[in-house]
């Protein structure tokens, strides 16, 4: 069955274009590189300890990796897989986001209740901002003026003015916020709460809550439906939300905030990345150690790809 699908994909290369998905394996200290055309792992690259967050520079000439237990952000040449240098990241970097200026990384230091801002060119720490306990989710507005850190135990989204590196608002969300993304041209902020089981939608202009999205999967206790990573389609009309140990990804209408569908994926789904043409979505499944491929148009899972132990972050390289 699987090989039949793979053959089908090979026979129709225009459907899934070229490019790669890079997956960090939290308990293997490696990155698995998936070739999108063949949907096979083509390279396994060693990293520092406990790699989690991963993102590419704008021109894709560099890849940044949060090596949490090495207390550093590694900068890698994606062609060779060689580590070029480390960045001073603060302790236990978990997630980060690259500012639209392509120069500043905003890093959540999970063990330190701090957000660290690093200049990737001068390789220096520009600022450290005190936030709540266990900072994790990171986002920057499209205009680059606002950075967001979510803190898992304080249960807040912290709003950082990137000009002054000061907090200008702290908004409560449900328990254990994990991930944040701006949408609608930067006018809306979505924050997922893992234990609360919700996504809170904020109006960016005044930081007020405009909606709360809940999830309900028949046959699965609500306690196990735990939203973590999520991604918007480029038209910002649809959000795909990873629901952790419920082993499902929710398809959410980003205009009405209605959940339209649940797609069964691997066990403990964490984060996701789209293929360059956005036709495929790749989910990291922490417990089952694999990646599920979702056909975005059909909203169906089509294939599973074995990667390393506890895959966590995912990023696309064209």
């Amino acid at each position: 069955m699987r090989s039949a699908i793979a053959l089908l994909l090979l026979a129709a290369p225009c459907w899934a274009d070229a490019g790669e998905i890079w997956v960090t394996n939290e308990r293997d200290d490696t990155i698995s590189v998936i070739d999108i055309a063949t949907l096979a792992v083509t390279r396994t690259i060693p990293t520092g300890e406990r790699p989690r967050g991963i993102t590419f520079s704008k021109d894709f000439s560099r890849v940044y990796i949060c090596a949490s237990d090495s207390d550093t952000v590694q900068v890698m040449d994606p062609e060779t897989g060689a580590i070029l240098h480390d960045l001073p990241s603060g302790e236990d970097p978990e997630q980060f986001v690259l500012h639209p200026d392509d120069r500043h990384l905003y890093i959540a230091n999970e063990d330190d209740a701090v957000t660290t801002v690093v200049d990737v060119e001068s390789r220096t720490v520009v600022a450290q901002i005190n936030v709540g306990i266990e900072p994790e989710g990171m986002a920057v507005s499209p205009d680059g003026k606002i950075a967001i850190t979510t803190s898992e135990t304080t249960n807040m989204a912290h709003w950082i003015d990137t000009g002054t590196h000061e907090l200008f608002a702290n908004t409560l969300v449900d328990s254990r916020p994990r991930h944040a993304e701006f949408t609608r041209g930067g006018t809306e902020l979505w924050v997922s709460s893992e234990i609360g089981g919700t996504i809170t939608v904020f109006s960016v202009a005044d930081q007020t809550e405009v909606a709360k999205i809940g999830f309900e999967i028949s046959g699965i206790h609500p306690d196990r439906v735990q939203p973590v990573g999520f991604r918007f389609t480029p038209d910002e009309k649809t959000a795909f939300v990873a629901l952790g140990p419920s082993n499902h990804v929710a398809v959410v209408n980003a205009e009405t905030y209605e959940v339209e569908k649940y797609i069964l994926v691997g066990r403990r789904v964490w984060h996701m990345a789209f293929s360059p043409d956005n036709s495929l979505l790749f989910t990291t499944n922490g417990v089952s150690g694999d990646v599920t491929v979702i056909d975005v148009a059909a909203q169906e899972a089509t294939q599973t790809i074995k990667v390393g132990r506890f895959p966590w972050g995912a990023a696309m390289r064209p």
Partner: peptide, 17 residues
């Protein structure tokens, strides 16, 4: 399936101050 809860931002603001 759907749970949208409209919440008054004013409430948290008053609690916070």
């Amino acid at each position: 399936m759907l749970r949208i809860v409209a919440v008054l931002g004013v409430f948290w603001a008053s609690a916070a101050s």
